[in-house]
Design a protein around this nucleic acid. Structure first.
Lengths: 216, 216
DNA sequence: GAGCCCATCCCGCGCATGCGTGATGGTGGG
DNA sequence: CCCACCATCACGCATGCGCGGGATGGGCTC
């Protein structure tokens, strides 16, 4: 049974809270919480002496190295370890950064131990445990990213789309003409039609609209 | 107790599965599954005759109106209803679209009834219930969106940033000069410096880089 | 005080761009 | 059969743009 134990590290600067969680987790069936650290630096130092854990519970917003940077470094040095952020913060920026840094989950410190335990198992099973509100936030952020691509369809023809793409890459009309084996004048005409359809009158405007609204 | 019941609709084209889930949910404590529909159209028709439910379980990928469109329409006509997608699909595109359309949760049809029940409660409590793998996918997608903003810092000064922003809006040098109450030449100089820092040599390139990498 | 960065301003050249105003041919629907 | 739409090509003009040169002054560090 001990061999089957899930190894967990907890990085958290509040010693009291750390010990409480560690003890509670250790008593949970199937867990072996063998590392408690007050900072990311300490944890990394330990990483060079002992094998990486399967799961890291990490408090972001602790002294010294930023928890966000810590996630990134852990992802490098112990890619197989699943990192679950355990914090009091629930502002979008922190959540966003943590996820982008590679966190596998995001819990609030107010979570009961059973929830933490469930989250750890979930993370190891390939899941992404999140507090309900956090998950909601993530979805909101996600949805906010999308409307960007509004209707997106301005009725551009194939050629026009091609030319618009080239324009986004910074090509001049002459270059585009050469690249598509067209006359300069043809490209010019297409460009005018694109402007009309996108309701702009400069290439800058067209590129901005193209990037903001749809085709990358 | 009946007054406290959570009202649920289930939109699902497989009649057998629909009835099974409805019956099971209805027997769960605190649920009142009072609508079962084989298509979004049917559900919308019902919406004009009876009050909207608190939660809609929706199968995407059903005949007639696309489930994705259904989400969007539901969000319009019954904004307060929480929509939980219940499907067999777990490809990224479907997930992405569903979330963008405003789904509050995403479950797999393989989920046991207790999980569905928990999800409904979670959704009403402001959460975003998701199957573990789905959540993982969402986070992956999220993380993939981010690297876009790389380091993002090219050491632009305040003025340069200002001018870059105006450029993104499609302003010409002259317009920017007028807007910022500067000389045309000054704007020109700043532009050159921006180009140097962003390693581009056209306004189009600068705008593209600005939009792709950082400030929207 | 020298050196550096930033913000400000100036001139001129050559090329790119936006736009008005044309034309031709092909394809498909009414 | 004609018309709409698309793709193709063409000329000229006014303006905008990129860039190679400048210059001045303010603030900051060494």
């Amino acid at each position: 049974m001990a061999a089957e134990s899930i190894t967990v590290w907890l990085i958290e600067d509040n010693a009291t809270f750390r010990r409480t969680v560690m003890r509670a987790l250790d008593q949970e069936d199937g867990f072996h919480c063998l590392g408690g650290f007050g900072s990311c630096e300490d944890a990394f130092a330990a990483l060079s002496r002992q094998p990486a854990p399967q799961v890291v519970l990490l408090d972001v917003g602790l002294p010294g190295m930023s928890g966000l940077d810590g996630i990134a470094r852990f992802r490098e040095q112990a890619p197989q370890a699943r990192i679950i952020v355990l914090t009091v913060f629930e502002d979008e920026d922190k959540i966003f950064r943590a996820i982008c840094a590679g966190a596998a989950g995001y819990l609030l410190k107010t979570a009961p131990v059973e929830e933490i335990a469930r989250a750890i198992r979930d993370a190891l099973a390939g899941g992404a445990p999140m507090n309900g509100r956090i998950a909601r936030r993530v979805l909101d952020m996600f949805a906010r990213f999308a409307p960007t691509r509004g209707d997106g369809d301005y009725g551009l023809t194939t050629r026009e789309t091609q030319i618009l793409e080239a324009m986004v890459k910074g090509r001049t009309k002459k270059e585009i003409a050469a690249q598509l084996d067209l006359s300069f004048h043809t490209v010019d005409t297409h460009l005018r039609n694109i402007y009309q359809k996108l309701e702009v009158n400069t290439r800058t405007g067209a590129v901005a609209k193209a990037l903001k609204e749809k085709l990358v």
